[in-house]
Write a protein that binds this DNA or RNA. Structure first.
Lengths: 191, 191
DNA sequence: TAGAGCATGTAATAGGTTACATGATTAG
DNA sequence: CTAATCATGTAACCTATTACATGCTCTA
């Protein structure tokens, strides 16, 4: 079994119920966007492949006034494949952090630009905290009785913990480079 | 100017001094591996392109007993390109987290597998904390007087803060799913 | 009447990993 | 003798984003 993570993200959404490519995109956007994303360019070809491999079935639903929907449903084989993947240890790959890359080489920047880099990072994490409110609410409202709701909310709590840690780190960095600035100012005056 | 992050990671390494593709790989592995990675399949073609665009120059160094080295040096134009990229706001793209994806759909797992998923995550973060010791030491020893050392160490401190937050989150999750287990056990006995 | 939402899909392009080929030296 | 290190590079493949094409309906 190939280990394409997008396949399993899509199978995962299908495990909650039948859906079209469009639905899947929307679900991922609304409920998983804090740690996952998929574009149509991935979704549609993968759905076709899932159907060919009998991990999902497809049927066309006619609609009036709207384009036809291709609705996919997970099969028993699909559920088995999903469960198998879920129980494998996650593949480890370095997560890249562009802000850290820029900070690492920020000797090539002036102090203002470096401060702005960190301030922007901090601000982005603050925005994420706000987004989590919305995601949490939308998860709770969409299916308040769903037995898996608790797991969904735990992913939000992960995002919050991470964002808060990054904000604290940013504050620490800003204090440090601030202190350095002041020290430099003093030594310039003394010189 | 194209916004290929690998180009700039490589230019960044070259901004510290001349290096071969092999050197660059090693440097990234030793000093940036906690937030960045590059494979030879990226490095060699990009170096060639950088030379063609006059962002770097290349000269062949003969060696006895070892293959020749192709040593690249950043040019003034290369430094300008790097500085320009560094001062642009980082491109935002969702960081994917495979563990969270699995947790989200872990309704398809049994409780033991779910616990193992989180325990493995926790353990990976603990391992990262140990790796940071090594990275920090290697950074400090390789160039203890380097004016940018402080920025390099800040990237390590970011990694630590993140790993610690993730460990705390894991502990919280483990407590929660443990509590749920106990509750279930009780209700089963009562039933 | 403009724009957003519904809905499917493909093509071009970009970004990235892995495997392979080659071959000498050095350390255990 | 074996494995690791030095060193460069390519080809095949996989993964992912963006732009494009199409066209209806509903809302502001």
């Amino acid at each position: 079994m190939k280990s394409n993570r997008s396949r399993y993200a899509i199978l995962g959404v299908l495990s909650e119920g039948p859906a079209s490519g469009y639905d899947i995109r929307k679900t991922i956007e609304q409920e998983l966007s804090h740690f996952w994303n998929e574009s149509y360019g991935q979704i549609y070809p993968i759905l076709r492949a899932l159907a060919e491999e009998r991990l999902a079935t497809r049927r066309r639903k006619k609609q009036r006034g709207k384009p036809d929907r291709q609705v996919y449903s997970i099969t028993a084989k699909g559920r088995r494949a999903l469960r198998e993947w879920l129980s494998e240890p996650p593949s480890l790959q370095t997560e890249r952090n562009e802000t850290l890359l820029k900070l690492f080489f920020s000797g090539n920047l002036d102090t203002t630009e470096r401060r702005e880099l960190i301030e922007a990072y901090r601000e982005k994490q603050r925005e994420r905290l706000v987004e989590y409110e919305g995601i949490e609410r939308s998860l709770e409202e969409s299916s308040p009785e769903h037995p898996d709701l608790k797991f969904w909310l735990l992913t939000v709590s992960h995002g919050r913990a991470e964002a808060r840690a990054r904000i604290r780190w940013s504050d620490q960095v800003l204090r440090e480079i601030e202190a350095r600035e002041v020290a430099k100012g003093r030594s310039r005056r003394r010189a």
